[in-house]
Design a binder for these strands. Structure first.
Lengths: 243, 243
DNA sequence: CAGTGGTCTAGACCACCGA
DNA sequence: CGGTGGTCTAGACCACTGA
């Protein structure tokens, strides 16, 4: 039972503030001296806390301007959770179209993955079907489930089509910030509606991506299954950093 | 034309030392005060340089013991560049078997990806074919190309079968440390020899992973195409960090 | 110009490790 | 016990930003 380092403590308190909405995405945080005073620590201890949050892409610092709460919609983040690129490595801006949206009882697997209670009546989730287009070509179809509790009114408003990432909309409209994802990839045969939407023959190989997306405190908030036609596109993974 | 921060300068000099073999993988580095004195900087500037190398998984620090040069073969790294896991997320230790090894002229695409000259006679590479087995089941087949210049004598010795990662052997036997990879994933139909080795029917969907692996200074040293049968296994990608 | 974050230092105390 | 890295502080100077 060892005591948490002071800077970790401060980091946690800042995260609590972010969860509580003390500062909202896009906001400027108070200056270093002010924050240091507020948490009763030296400025360099505060800086250690901020540095970890910057490394985690949750905060953003700009010399001469201040420390900001990251926006998913900002230029440097728009691709960070979107991995489909052209086979030659070039990134293209995706377009999204909602094919369907309904409110249903969560099946057991969905409830477990989202850590919702398996009540008798069933926890409810919104299920969406999304088509993703790159350069005018339909490339992927996603089935998405999110808890209704976190997205009140979604059944009425839905999500407009466009190229802003869904995660940007989660954040902007519902205050839900995705900070981590876990993808499991496999290859499957195209079937039924997917084959039709993607304009491929039944039985053609598709890339299937099953994702769980998390917000603060490792809380899962979305599960999504994407099937992508990888004729001219690929799923890109970069691992490690150059030195 | 702005001057590089001192700690970046120190970091670069340490990396140069690693490339030059001044310290080898597994070695203990000199203590902080000694390194600080050696580079003529304050101890906290040195620490900033070391911290970035630790973050990049190149160095490893243990309180009370010292700072070490990372080994690919060490427990925490054995999985870091291996992404195939059971569909339920459990990691299993892979086994490797070499199916073939030959020395050939690099085709243009290979030469370009490895940044080798397209000489008239052609740069030479070793081409290997590897089978990867998980829990006794053949799950993937990899075709690998590496420049002969970096792996002298490989055609005689080859790589013994086993479960140590190839990257561990690159490092141990040839002093080549892989620090970054770039994978492009797609879905393809099983064909010919691959279908046979993986014991699947022709036309079954396979996950195809095309990888370029880099060492220091963004130098590419290996290209590899893996085809995996994702019946019971998946390619796992974690993105972002929990807070 | 004043205010911000970025870099750099000196020095203290602590926790961990192995002899 | 002495040596290691881990944490924490105070304080200085610099570079960038916007008014």
């Amino acid at each position: 039972m060892t005591r948490l380092p002071l800077y970790k403590e401060v980091k946690n308190r800042i995260v609590e503030g972010l969860i509580a909405g003390e500062w909202r995405p896009g906001d400027v945080m108070p200056s270093e001296p002010r924050l240091a005073k507020h948490y009763g620590v030296g400025i360099n201890t505060l800086r250690a806390a901020l540095s970890e949050l910057v490394a985690a892409n949750i905060l953003l610092r700009r010399q001469g301007k201040g420390t900001f709460v990251s926006l998913h919609a900002s230029a440097q983040n728009i691709y960070s959770f979107f991995n489909l690129v052209r086979a030659d490595g070039i990134r293209e801006l995706p377009a999204r179209r909602m094919l369907s949206l309904r409110k249903v009882a969560a099946d057991n697997r969905t409830a477990d993955l989202l850590q919702l209670p398996r009540t008798r009546t069933g926890s409810t989730v919104f299920r969406m079907k999304i088509q993703i287009t790159l350069s005018g070509t339909p490339v992927a179809v996603s089935e998405i489930a999110v808890p209704t509790a976190l997205f009140p009114g979604l059944e009425r408003r839905g999500f407009e089509d466009g190229s802003v990432s869904l995660y940007g909309l989660y954040q902007e409209s519902y205050g839900v910030t995705i900070i981590r994802t876990r993808d499991m990839l496999g290859a499957v045969k195209a079937q039924g509606a997917d084959a039709q939407v993607l304009a491929v023959r039944t039985g053609e190989p598709l890339l299937e991506i099953t994702r769980v997306a998390y917000t603060f405190n490792a809380r899962p908030v979305e599960i999504r299954t994407t099937r992508a036609h990888t004729g001219n596109y690929r799923y890109l993974v970069e691992h490690g950093s150059s030195v």
